[in-house]
Amino acid sequence: MTSQPLLSDPHGAVQALRLTCALAATTTDVAMLLGAPLAWWLARGTDWRRDVVGSILTLPLVLPPTVLGFYLLLALGPSGVGGALSRFTGRPTLAFTFTGLVIGSVIAALPYVVQSARAAFETVGRAPVEIAYTLRASPLRAFWTVAVPLAAPGLLAAAVLAFAHTMGEFGLVLMIGGDIPGRTRVLAMALYDDVEAGEWREAHLIAGGMVGFAFVVILIMTLAQKRLARRKP
């Protein structure tokens, strides 16, 4: 499929940027909703079950994105779970769709969320939560009203890291989303298209913008970590 260079097509530029931001925002929301409770559970003990779950969650961090994307493509495609759901609902498979991109991006972002959030919860320690228990707070209430506020800087860093990782993801998107304008063509794919077409000016502008965004992400994480360090007893 041939696509127009990003900056020579204003409508395509806006479309790719909106799609990328929507994917990153949705992925961050879902990854935080799933990852924060998992990180809390992992931070509360050291038994073998937590080690196994933690290792499974960390796999996407060390696997090449194309390998993860390959297995997700099989799972979301006609021969996998996606095909079964397609036959049951009468709708297309999840491969090469925005929903499929969200599923893959959440799996890829979870290790970053869980590791950052787990470190934040471990920094909080057990004492504040145990005090809440003595005041008859339920585990769920203690989590939301004590652990989460105290770990807020670390959770913010986790969310920023998940958002930034999704913004720059390429290999996974290529495998399960392809390069469909308006559906799965994100900024990383647009950069690849510009380089392939020899549109170096457009490629430099996209890459420069992403470098600037990465710098802001690192700065936010550094400030959040400093704030977290000041909260240590």
Rank of each mutant, 00 (worst) to 15 (best):
A109W: 00
I218G: 05
T27K: 11
Q225K: 14
L68W: 02
P5Q: 03
S3I: 15
V53D: 09
P111A: 08
W48Y: 13
A142D: 08
L34N: 07
S79I: 11
A152Q: 07
E199D: 10
R118L: 14
T97E: 03
V148H: 01
V195G: 08
A16P: 04
A25Y: 12
I206R: 04
D179A: 14
H165C: 11
M210V: 10
L94P: 04
G12T: 09
Q225W: 15
L42K: 09
R18W: 12
V81P: 06
G177Q: 10
R185Q: 09
G35T: 03
R126Q: 13
D193W: 04
V30A: 08
I176E: 03
T89N: 00
F213N: 11
T99H: 10
P5S: 03
L38P: 04
P181K: 02
G154E: 05
L228G: 15
L187N: 01
R183Q: 15
G171A: 04
G90N: 08
F96S: 07
R18P: 06
I218D: 13
L156N: 13
R91M: 14
V124H: 02
A203L: 01
L150C: 05
R185T: 02
G198M: 02
A117C: 12
R118T: 11
E169Q: 05
S79Q: 15
F98S: 02
T20R: 01
S105D: 00
L19R: 00
R230S: 09
A16K: 04
F70C: 01
F213H: 05
A127C: 11
A190H: 09
R126P: 09
P139T: 09
A13K: 05
Y71H: 00
Q15H: 09
A214S: 11
E202P: 13
A142L: 06
W144Q: 12
T222M: 13
R118V: 06
A158W: 09
W40A: 07
S79Y: 14
G69E: 03
R126F: 15
T99M: 13
Q225E: 14
L140V: 11
Y112A: 11
P128H: 04
P5H: 01
R141D: 13
H11D: 14
W144T: 12
T93Q: 07
A43L: 04
L23M: 01
L191C: 00
L94K: 05
E130Y: 09
K226T: 13
R183P: 07
H165G: 08
D179V: 15
G90K: 08
L156Q: 14
L135T: 06
R50A: 05
P64V: 15
L38C: 08
T89S: 13
V211G: 04
A31E: 00
G154Y: 07
V62K: 13
I180G: 09
W48G: 10
A127Y: 10
S116V: 14
G208T: 02
I218E: 15
I206A: 07
L73Y: 08
A147R: 00
T184L: 06
V217D: 12
G83D: 09
F88E: 11
P65N: 03
T2H: 13
P128G: 02
P139C: 08
D194N: 03
H11N: 10
A13R: 05
L19A: 04
L156A: 12
A39T: 05
S116Y: 03
F215P: 10
T134F: 15
L191Q: 02
A22W: 14
V173R: 04
P149A: 06
